[in-house]
Amino acid sequence: MTTKSVLLVGVGGQGTILASKLLTTGLMQAGYDVKMSEIHGMSQRGGSVSSQVRYGEKVLSPVIEPGGADILVSFEVMEALRWLNYLKPTGKVIVNQYQLPPMPVITGEAVYAADIIEDLRAHADVTVVNAAAIASELGNPKAMNIVLLGAIIKAMQLTDIDWEQLIRETVKPAFVDLNIKAVHRGMEAVE
């Protein structure tokens, strides 16, 4: 198989790192070669962040090129537009219906456009997931990242992997049930 590339983007502190950790561990256990690249450091302080996951028979570069991602999963609306050039023209976008105003918007120098999702739709196959609402419904807004993980699993046809078991092995016992529910709700959110 050719190498697949999953690009997770968001804002520092949104939990992209845990989502990509679960994803890569699941892929590894399923027997794929996996590489993942993240930039830590300065950007954690509310900056734009990305986790780049690549898997297949043999993966060479750990980084995804512009035009190289099979799927772009954005934890925040503006970030999807920022990273859209990393998507293959035939790729898919999953975008969380969730906005975090960047500092120039807060200070009033720039505006956060209201029609970004329409823009995305005009250029790619887009699925909007209201992960924030789903996670709140499940009782913890922070589980948003796991809802989105579920969406990735479905969109990349990785449902054969035993994600429930992996969640049991990885997350704190108190969060296991919540996260299992969140993963399933995320899968249901994608056709």
């Binding site: 300065m42 950007s43 954690q44 302080r45 509310g46 900056g47 503006m78 537009l81 120039p104 970004i116």
Partner: peptide, 8 residues
């Protein structure tokens, strides 16, 4: 429409 997101 992309607004920069510097760390804060």
């Amino acid at each position: 429409k992309i607004v920069g997101r510097p760390p804060t």
